[in-house]
Design a protein around this nucleic acid. Structure first.
Lengths: 236, 236
DNA sequence: GTACATGATGTTGTGCACAACATAAGAAGA
DNA sequence: TCTTCTTATGTTGTGCACAACATCATGTAC
């Protein structure tokens, strides 16, 4: 199964905390990568069986995911992956844009060779994205790059907030893209744009200019949202 | 007990969601108002007994509060109210300052008479804060005013983020204030400053200038943090 | 045929007993 | 006296049976 790619980084720790983290990351990845698309109904017992535990620890994870706005449990009905309507999506993007810029302004890290190397590495892997590539691979790289970008600030709470908003919106972005006619054309275009973004930011980091990198990111987030919004309005 | 003041707004709903909300708000208020100071160890069974339920629904609430950074459960030890060290506090304030300004910029509400009246009302109640007033009353008004201020934006996710950061830091601010020698002098000064802040913001709202109100708020948050930081450094 | 009542089915929520774990006190040995 | 192992105690974590709830199908009265 493809989702093992997303879950292989899970900690091997077998304590209570380790199990919790493993299940949590697995479910969050599946939601983010659309293995569990918005509206999907999950059954606690199925998950419990899959992870080899009872419903109790699974419920713990579900409560946390619900607190983060990715799930919603309804008594007697089920646990449903949340969807986001157009207005709320716009609101979250408004904030994401601002937070992206703040990552370059609040407690930016001092750039060292190791960090530069990480950006070079992911840039190289992004270059391999060709037209017609797997959407899933794109989503995965996007997520990986996001985490690398947030590591540009030492402000841990800011990283947390950004991460939370990212997991709320990136999946909706992807879901919307897949609904569009000729979505492959749109996606190919997004692939190229993403490659330019990664390249620009990587170079800014190499010059030690974290603020510039953040501003590039800000602009790309805003433009990416504007593009898909327009495409959706034109031919949904 | 004084905390009933904070909990009387709880919904009377007796369904599962209603119980959950009631327990959640009660515990969050207690943490925010220092009834449960940082480091305090809670026992699930005590809480269960107090609210007339078993440990199970209580644990649900605790998991959510843990996800929000207010609690931390440790297997075999207990559930502990989190503390925040100086560095993280500074980081959260950095963000709060920026978010306060954003509340005036992203999807501001159009001011109507009802909203103005609410600001007039809380302003009048703040004027009654005299020197030597109850710290608890101050904390409560502060919280109430915070919620009113966040209602200046229609951006719901932004409100949520602001709320989360507020509950994380305001209690630490208060705890720090109480540790300072001659804290009554500091607090009296803060009372007056807070009254000015409320008055300034209320007037900005009356003029329909939400952006100005938000900027005043931004400045006050930053200055408030700077003052207590200096006071703590000088005579802790 | 339609509206409504009633039961069957499936899901999450709750209560409770016990396991896993951490901590501190105490005993045994050097 | 100090160290170390053991044990007692208290806490959160887990598993399981059942209650509460929502939904859909079925049947019945009109």
């Amino acid at each position: 199964m493809a989702q093992t790619v997303a879950e292989e980084q899970a900690p091997a720790d077998d304590s209570a905390r380790g199990r919790f983290a493993r299940i949590y990351q697995a479910l969050r990845s599946r939601i983010c990568l659309l293995d569990y698309p918005p509206g999907k109904r999950l059954r606690e017992e199925d998950l419990a069986e899959e992870f080899g535990v009872s419903r109790t620890p699974v419920r713990r994870v579900l409560v946390k995911l619900e607190a983060e706005g990715l799930l919603r449990s309804v008594h007697g009905v089920g646990t449903i992956v949340t969807d986001i309507d157009a207005e709320e999506l716009a609101q979250v993007y408004e904030i994401r844009v601002e937070l992206a810029e703040l990552i370059g302004k609040l407690s930016p890290v001092e750039v060292n060779e190791e960090l530069i190397e990480k950006f070079r590495d992911i840039r190289a892997r992004c270059e391999q994205l060709t037209e017609g590539s797997d959407v899933r691979q794109f989503a995965w790289l996007n997520m990986e790059f996001f985490h690398l970008f947030t590591s540009l600030t030492r402000n841990e709470p800011l990283r947390e907030l950004s991460e939370r908003l990212y997991y709320q919106t990136s999946r909706i972005w992807m879901k919307t893209a897949l609904q569009i006619r000729d979505y492959q054309e749109l996606l190919d275009n997004e692939f190229r744009t993403f490659q330019r973004e990664v390249a620009d930011i990587a170079e800014a980091v190499e010059h030690g200019d974290v603020a510039a990198a953040a501003y590039v990111r800000r602009v790309h987030i805003a433009l990416s949202y504007a593009r898909i919004r327009r495409a959706f309005a034109e031919n949904s």
